[in-house]
Design a protein around this nucleic acid. Structure first.
Lengths: 204, 204, 204, 204
DNA sequence: GATGAATGAGGATTCATTCAT
DNA sequence: CATGAATGAATCCTCATTCAT
């Protein structure tokens, strides 16, 4: 009984891992069920026991990705807003680097066109990041850390497009730099300068 | 004489238009020669009279797009560096908006994976932008407008990833904002602040 | 269990037989997967379950053909070299006749141009024959049956080109004679005469 | 007028030359009208002004080949039959080498299957060679040079299959030897030995 | 005679998906 | 649950040939 279920879980796991591996190495366009099952060491038909469609496994892979970023940001109670945003950026880029260029490319590609790419790969990550950054800024305003005239929406979008832009440029430039290092430069050269005009001195 | 060649030009045009239309509506993944020629009203073989490979027509479509941006920047002789970079950003985002979200998405998608996507659609735009922005910064340094300790590479990449990030976020957010307006905010809230530490007062 | 695999074997067999039939009747140039599967009574895709490329099935057909010739030659311990070479020739021409003119033609054609014809159909038969005949001659020299001044290479090539020439002429002349009978004439009128100058009397 | 005709002749010539060149270099399978006309420097349609079908030009190319061999054999009045047959063989192999491996391969291939290959490339060469060699032998018998019990047909076929066999082996072995040299060895090691039993001493 | 634009049948190969065992 | 044989629609590309100019 439990054995049966456990076995099934393992089979499913093998398939997901195989798909993930291929996705990382070769990208979505070159992903096919044949290879997935061959690598997973199961029969082709087994794939369809667990996933009605090929895209479903991609969805599952991409779902978890990106979502558990930055939960640790909350824990930075004593840090100032610049540090917390910096931590978010660092977490973001660390995740980006960790997932690898192919997953990122795939994520971008899929999020650009939900119609022709894995349908399940939705914009949750995007919404999450927008909400997260806006939340951090609003909190800081409410907590008196930032001045009330801070244009929250504008800054949110500037910050987030910077993060997404670095990911995109990394993908375009084909690994020309290390994402992790760039989040540092982002914090160092950009973040504080942008926030500076809105910082309350007493908080400093 | 002229008629023959003119006809051919029109046929080619019809094919390009048909492909462009499909590209805009359905994206590259769903693009196929059959539909292109059907829409263009020519025989399938005719496509290959003008384009050796399917991807070549996509290249043709995307080429040009993005490439004639920002030549006017050079003409801004009297403007300071912030104004010139701002003009570049404005030109970039204006082009982005002008080409439309589908072409932009396609461009991003194709530039993400030259292996499986239109090979001809290369990174020229990317290289061009990188070189252009770096050039503007270097000139300003040489001209004494910016201090010599300006980290050219870092700033170039920050600026460019901001631009590309805005384009990407626009595509992701599905037209949630107008690119043109965002280049203004970019200039207003970010550009000057980042450059400020490196501005020579006398130039101001 | 057995049924599944057995069925598959039969399907594969059906495909091979269909291809062979077409090959015999129409030759390689007119061979296409569509017809093969139609005759075999399976779906087009099924062909590719068993053969990655069209040429692979042709290879399979031609392999084996020609390869198990002349193993019996080795067993002719007591026969003299002329008899053994004669036996080889006889085996060769018997095989030629047995396989039929179309397969022979196809084999020649394919072996003539590995680039555009079935790549897998290689020159094994050719190498095998060359090595076999040379081996027989060398053995006879080492065994003292033939004089040491025998020009092994030259004779090998003369003999082999005679054999292949008879096959070719048979194909060209469109069945004008029976290959089996010609190997007899080859032995009778040519083989002994050519070897004569090099025969050691004592062996006789 | 004459100019018109002369021009046309030149155009036709250019096409034939271009086709010949391609045939030599790439073989029949890779021959296509597009390349022929491109190399010839004429429009595609021009090809069809002179040749109703692609195969017709190949026929024209192959026709002349092989046919003007050995007309000089006739002139060897004083030579004995072995010398004359040797001269024929030499002429044959010289032609073979001169035409190149691709033409030879193509000729063999086409002669093997007139149905799928250039239809016009017929067996004339084959008939010509058979008749020629048989004629030489019969003449020698009638002239008393060879004994009347000479098995003309058998020897004719053995000789001719030897010649064709050398050509075939050359093609198969991919230029492993020089045809011209092999006709010498053929004469030296084989021809005289085969004829010896039938030679009338007085003629020598 | 010469052109070259247009054709469209034909052919190889891929691959997501089904289903009987 | 797991299998893997079978499917067939989809798609890219080739190229001999036609024909209006």
């Amino acid at each position: 009984m439990t054995t049966r279920k456990e076995r099934a879980r393992q089979t499913r796991e093998k398939i997901v891992r195989a798909a993930e591996e291929l996705l990382k190495v070769r990208g979505f366009a070159a992903l096919n069920v044949d290879d997935i099952t061959k690598i997973a060491g199961v029969a082709k038909g087994t794939f369809y026991v667990y996933f009605p469609h090929k895209t479903d496994v991609v969805e599952e892979i991409c779902r978890g990705y990106f979502q558990n970023v930055a939960l640790q940001v909350r824990s930075l109670r004593d840090a100032d807003i610049a540090q917390r945003l910096g931590a978010y950026a660092a977490g973001f880029m660390k995740a980006v680097q960790c997932y690898g260029i192919h997953i990122c490319r795939e994520w971008i590609r899929s999020v650009l066109d939900p119609a022709c790419a894995p349908e399940g790969v939705d914009r949750r990550k995007w919404r999450f990041d927008v909400d997260m950054l806006r939340g951090l800024l609003e909190e800081a305003v409410q907590g008196g850390e930032l001045k009330p005239d801070l244009p929250v929406d504008t800054l949110t979008h500037l910050l987030i497009s910077q993060l997404y832009g670095m990911m995109l440029c990394w993908c375009i430039s084909d690994n020309e730099f290390r994402p992790e290092e760039w989040s540092d430069r982002f914090s160092e050269f950009q973040l504080r300068l942008i926030l500076a005009p809105y910082m309350n001195d007493n908080k400093r």
